[in-house]
Design a protein around this nucleic acid. Structure first.
Lengths: 346, 346
DNA sequence: CTGAAAGCGCTTACAG
DNA sequence: CTGAAAGCGCTTACAG
């Protein structure tokens, strides 16, 4: 490089490049790059010299330059295919976001947060995705037939879903808690502690948790020789308010119920409020079991007995799966067990 | 480009570049780039041809290549200088994250989520920041003397804080709600509705909200000729549990109190539980006022009267300020008014 | 208004 | 094990 060519910015203001490191270490830029890539085929002496120069100069790789040649963005998206309201109100999503951020940080991969709850938003992010501005996507969506799955396939972008994506054909990677077994464990626990009229507030029937947890509930009742009774079943939308109104409904239809399995802690919170208003006690008159073990479970009055979802393992596994897929591996499904957490409500 | 040189990947599998667009439109790559930059100094005819080619080919700009030459990352970080637990438990942070994501999306700028709650995490992200892998930082931290401020300054990275950063010298951009006036409005409201023994549960005294809201409380009491009384003041840490224990403490020290201004809704939730346990009623015996208008405010029993923080405006303003700084503008301070939301607890 | 050309900072065959 | 060189896909003075 001839020093007669003026730099765009004065050199001393620009961060050091491999060129500077190479000059300092007395090697070529290629060698510096090899050290950066893990030091294969580099003599210990060169390696040493390069590392010293890197420390000395405070060199940090320019990700844009690297991306340009490797054709990899070096980042991953956390994509919310939900209306923002819905997402940010649900403590589970927050827990998941936290877990994924953490898991990715361990791989030094930045997480890009993207929302795509509306058609307009989806249009806006399409170029971003199909331009491969991220290497892969952690897809968070709880609704049947999310349009994002098709988008991502077309963009040939690796992705893994949180929870089984309903209404999709073909192989889709996903990681999920064992909703079915979890529900069974909870309802069994209630029956075994002497309850006889167990109702349920299920989640939306276009979400996997909504369907699976309800199925588990029904199975255990049948196992115990109890006849199915539609008066004992209400369908909510995972919100606090829906838990409240569903509980009200159940109590009207089946005033003799002595337990209720609620498919989310948030709805269980609403159910508790509805029960309290009728003057009944929990767990004295009615046992209440939640699902999630979200923060509201322990602050609820009384504290909720609930099924813990293994969020840490879910997020770690999602990240691991995604990175594997980015490296060319095929899709996979992982189901993780839930755990009964006994507090006071049941 | 001689076609004898083999491509690394077959051309048909690679996304189109400006080269392809240029060929299609019958212009040079420079012209294509000019159209991409807004179309200045480009004839309408060329403009038209280029746009048609872009649509036809489904061209999407390669951000890495652009970054490399413009020396801009094209993304912004949302940096949590808090332990993750703390952050993700607080609904305010979530609301803020949501607002910032939205505001940035409108500028087509990806948000990179980064946590730096521990020293180890801070070390890990330092190269990322000093390598300018983002153009600026939205800094979320509520503690005095956050080390991140110094880090960011040294990295010469534009940043704007959420809330006044305590214990910092020199100019720092920040956007905050008017904690002081907000607290005064709430306490005035309580006094004007006939309360005489107004207590407070303040936030941590190393956070701006903790300090300012307590100061506002004291001022209004003085305004009304009421003598300061330390038995009426407790200091919490914004958590539900601390609200509960602080309330218990206040009730022990000053059983005759008839109102309490709590510096966060989460703490107010805990306070309600503590009050309920003593058999007192809200607002009959004790009026409770919160701060934030977070989701818990409306689900609390009874629903909380609170001061609404203008989160949407805060996030929009933070983003606007940050983008301005990235474009070379100087630092600024913005204080936004809060609003009294009357529900049932006071 | 336009094209040719340099250059952003890396990685990676290639030839030794 | 190492260096020289090509190339990743853009932007932007520069000269017309």
């Amino acid at each position: 490089m001839t020093e007669t060519t003026p730099q765009r910015r004065p050199r001393h203001k620009r961060p050091p490049t491999i060129h500077d490191v190479a000059a300092h270490a007395g090697v070529s830029r290629g060698t510096v790059s090899r050290v950066l890539q893990g030091g294969h085929n580099v003599s210990p002496a060169s390696q040493e010299a390069v590392n010293a120069a890197i420390r000395k100069l405070g060199y940090v790789v320019n990700r844009a330059a690297r991306s340009l040649v490797t054709q990899r963005a070096g980042s991953v998206a956390f994509l919310l295919s939900e209306t923002q309201d819905r997402f940010f109100a649900d403590p589970n999503f927050t827990t998941l976001l936290r877990g994924c951020t953490q898991a990715l940080a361990e791989h030094d991969i930045p997480l890009v947060l993207i929302t795509a709850g509306t058609e307009a938003e989806r249009r806006r992010i399409t170029p971003f995705l199909s331009g491969h501005h991220v290497d892969g996507v952690l897809l968070i969506s709880s609704h049947r037939g999310s349009p994002m799955v098709e988008h991502l396939r077309r963009a040939e972008l690796p992705f893994v879903c949180c929870g089984k994506p309903l209404g999709q054909r073909g192989k889709v990677s996903y990681v999920a808690a064992d909703d079915h077994e979890g529900a069974k464990d909870m309802v069994r626990y209630m029956l075994e502690s002497g309850r006889r009229r167990v109702a349920t507030i299920a989640g939306p029937q276009d979400s996997p948790g909504g369907v699976e947890r309800l199925a588990g509930y029904r199975e255990v009742l049948a196992e115990h020789g109890l006849a199915p009774d539609d008066r004992l079943v209400a369908i909510g939308d995972y919100s606090w308010a829906s838990g409240e109104s569903c509980m009200h409904e159940l109590l009207t239809r089946a005033p003799d119920l002595d337990a209720v399995f609620v498919a989310s802690d948030l709805m269980a919170g609403g159910a508790l409020a509805a029960i309290e208003r009728t003057g009944r006690s929990v767990p004295g008159d009615i046992a209440v079991g939640g699902f999630d073990d979200s923060p509201v479970a322990s602050t609820a009055r009384p504290p909720l007995t609930t099924m813990r979802q293994p969020w840490d393992r879910i997020s770690e596994t999602m990240v691991r799966q995604l990175l594997a897929q980015i490296d060319g591996e095929g899709p996979a499904t992982v189901i993780l067990p839930t755990e009964l957490v006994v507090r006071e409500s049941s």
